[in-house]
């Protein structure tokens, strides 16, 4: 048997399917615009079963809302994971910024009296 040496600089094990070649530097996207004529991005929310809220599960591309719903069904509910789907154009979502996290959520930070445990009730008072 020859002493085989692994080509350690030519591949790495990254991600779920393991070893991939480490080719030339991989361009990794400054925020990009979609190529011409590409379908817009939709965020997908699925209600897992009756009685539960819709929950964000991911995104997909589709030309319009109807196609987005069909694609969402095929991508996110192949095994009965949902009874209802919402699709929302990604650009329509307004989100709080993580940068202003502290200031934005500060108003609730110092209001411990909003929690039931703030109040001392004697042990002999039942059902409270």
């Amino acid at each position: 048997m020859t002493e085989a040496s692994p080509p350690s600089d030519s591949f790495t094990a990254e991600g779920g399917h393991g070893a991939v070649p480490t080719g030339p530097a991989v361009p990794t996207g400054s925020p990009t615009r979609s190529p011409r004529n590409s379908w817009p991005l939709w965020e997908v929310f699925v209600r897992g079963k009756r009685g539960l809220n819709h929950v964000h599960v991911g995104s997909l591309h589709a030309a319009d809302g109807e196609m987005a719903l069909g694609n969402a069904r095929d991508v996110y509910t192949r095994r009965n994971e949902g009874v209802s789907i919402w699709v929302v154009p990604a650009g329509s979502i307004t989100a709080s910024s993580p940068d202003e996290k502290d200031a934005f959520f500060a108003p609730s930070g110092d209001k411990v009296y909003r929690h039931p445990t703030f109040y001392e009730i004697p042990d002999n008072v039942p059902h409270m």
Binding site: F11, G18, A19, P31, T32, S59
Partner: peptide, 26 residues
Amino acid sequence: SAAETLGIDRGEMTEMLISGRQKYSS
């Protein structure tokens, strides 16, 4: 979908796969 949250476009990734600039498992 997960990669797109980092600001890269899906179409761009497909182009990079086809042109060999991004790789897949051997």
